[in-house]
Amino acid sequence: MKKWLMIAALAATPALAQDAELRAVGDFDDIEGEEVRSVALFEEMLKVIEHPRCLNCHPVNGGPTQGDDMTPHMPPVVRGDADFGAPGMFCTTCHGTQNVAFVTGDGSIPGHEPWALAPVSMGWQGLSGAEICAQLKDPERNGDRDLAELHEHMAEDGLVGWGWHPGDGRTPVPGTQEAFGEIVQAWIDTGAACPG
């Protein structure tokens, strides 16, 4: 009888279509025209913004999605009045203050303090880059932030930063939060232009 051996393969994390790397701000210096450069910087920002780690909790209406294929969250959860789940099953029923590796197998449950959905006004799923850009700059929809505060949110907020450290079994967003912050700053410095 033929005898053969095989080492059990670990489930590989599916690769995303996007570039795994975030370009450095300096890579945009060659682009002629400040507005064109600004748009290019925004499109680089979209590598982060449109990453499933970010989009999953920026739905446009109901509950979150999950995974790189952005399937509905399981167990089923609803947004709730405070973007924090339903009375009796808030986000914190399962999500703690840190990522927690499963003890029975591979993978982890994500966590951070705080852990919540972005408000409906900041929903991104299904929006074009231009629409997201307009929304980001609109104080009516962005949580009454000016551009400096927007930069602070993108560059320093802990829950945003979770996207780069999402725990075992999840693809991190590209680059680092620091590098992303630099791109956001460069985008603001070049006039925070939006794609046409």
Binding site: K2, W4, L5, M6, I7, A8, V103, T104
Partner: peptide, 18 residues
């Protein structure tokens, strides 16, 4: 139980598929 599970995760096993 927690230690047993952690120990199991740390095992390395090769399998015979005959």
């Amino acid at each position: 139980t927690a230690a047993a599970l952690k120990g199991r995760e740390a095992l390395s096993v090769e399998w015979d598929y005959t």
